[in-house]
């Protein structure tokens, strides 16, 4: 299942620089929290440069093997290369930015 990620301030046809895929297990409170946290961080630091694809493993379990998913939630940074993985509920913003290799914007 794929949920179109919010796309803001981006020219049409131009693929976003950060392609993220979020793996969750069901529409649980944890999953929703994780998605909210991730989205907030991305909006803050990567506004207009990202897209998030959410995969619910309870509905498409066959997709777990492809990205070697064990822990949930996991977000996989598919672009830019190299592939990076961040696990947890993304409550630690600093570590998420380290994981995404993004320079924080001081706001």
């Amino acid at each position: 299942m794929s949920v179109p990620a919010p796309r803001t301030a981006r020219k049409a046809g131009d693929p976003p620089a950060f392609q993220l895929r979020l793996y969750v297990a069901g529409q649980t409170a944890k999953s929703l929290d994780a998605f909210a946290n991730l989205k907030r961080i991305c909006e803050t630091h990567l506004a207009g440069q990202y897209c998030i694809e959410v995969i619910d493993l309870t509905k498409t379990p066959q997709l777990a093997a492809g990205d070697q998913i064990l822990a949930v939630p996991t977000v996989v940074r598919r672009l830019p290369e190299p592939i990076k993985k961040i696990i947890g509920d993304f409550s630690n913003e600093e570590r998420v930015l380290v994981g995404l290799d993004v320079q924080p914007i001081n706001a």
Binding site: K30, A65, A71, V72, I86, I87, S91, G99
Partner: peptide, 24 residues
């Protein structure tokens, strides 16, 4: 099913569980 995890690929950012393993 080959489960492969690389310590260096991971960044822990909070709570998680291994539901992915169970699902697989």
């Amino acid at each position: 099913d080959y489960v492969h995890i690389e310590r260096s690929e991971f960044e822990e950012t909070g709570e998680y569980d291994l539901e992915g393993l169970f699902i697989r």
